[in-house]
């Protein structure tokens, strides 16, 4: 475990906690895309099947359980909680799941490291994670006014994969640990999707004005 990996995991954890905090305390999910949250729940459910088969470390297992638990609770809050669900803007959050899920499924069937169920699901989860933020980014673009917590959530989520890339570079040089090129490409795509958001996030921070995305 190096500092980049730890920082990446911590920003990932923080992003989820920020979102849960917002939903739980303000009882509102305004500006949050249910589509993105459902895709993340699917990402974790397909990637972390290995908690039943492999043991890596207590840290690893605990983190996996946290990500599974938090993603499914967020989905539950937006769909089922009697107050939170009222703040969900269904009309704006129109991105179609299958538009992302199907291509990722096909790509995983075509490009993978090993043809086993577990490995295919893992590869699928890597592809899906790379693009799962899209419904959320589209929603931000549509609503334009972004509250602080939602902005921080997206920022932390983007920071997480960028730190993972630094972690892969570091591991390559220190441990000669090779991350498969599938992971590299997906990770780079995932990080690049945030480039635009990062730009406006830092601009608003620098000028000390409220974050707004251009129409």
């Amino acid at each position: 475990m190096n500092i980049f990996r730890l920082a990446g995991d911590m920003t990932h954890l923080a992003s989820v906690l920020v979102l849960l905090l917002k939903i739980h305390t303000i009882k509102s999910c305004a500006g949050v895309s249910l589509k993105t949250q459902e895709l993340y729940a699917l990402v974790f459910a397909t990637r972390y099947l290995d908690i039943f088969t492999d043991f890596i470390s207590v840290y690893n297992t605990v983190m996996k359980l946290i990500f599974l638990g938090s993603s499914f609770s967020i989905v539950w809050y937006i769909r089922r909680h009697k107050i939170v669900r009222r703040s969900y803007d269904k009309e704006q959050d129109t991105f179609r799941h299958y538009f992302l899920v199907l291509p990722c499924l096909l790509l995983a069937l075509l490009i993978h490291e090993k043809f086993t169920v577990k490995e295919l699901l893992w590869t699928f989860s890597i592809y899906l994670e790379a693009v799962a933020i899209l419904p959320q980014l589209v929603l931000l673009q549509r609503t334009r006014n972004i509250d602080n917590l939602t902005g921080q959530y997206v920022f932390l989520l983007g920071a997480y994969r960028s730190l993972y890339i630094l972690n892969w570079i570091y591991r390559y040089f220190t441990e000669r640990h090779f991350v498969h090129w599938i992971t590299w490409i997906a990770g780079l795509v995932q990080t690049l999707l945030y480039a635009d958001f990062f730009y406006y996030y830092f601009e608003s921070w620098k000028n000390n004005v409220k974050l707004q995305l251009p129409a």
Partner: peptide, 10 residues
């Protein structure tokens, strides 16, 4: 021996 890719990251 067969190399099984192990995913030790999250």
């Amino acid at each position: 021996k067969e190399k099984v890719p192990q995913h030790d990251e999250l």
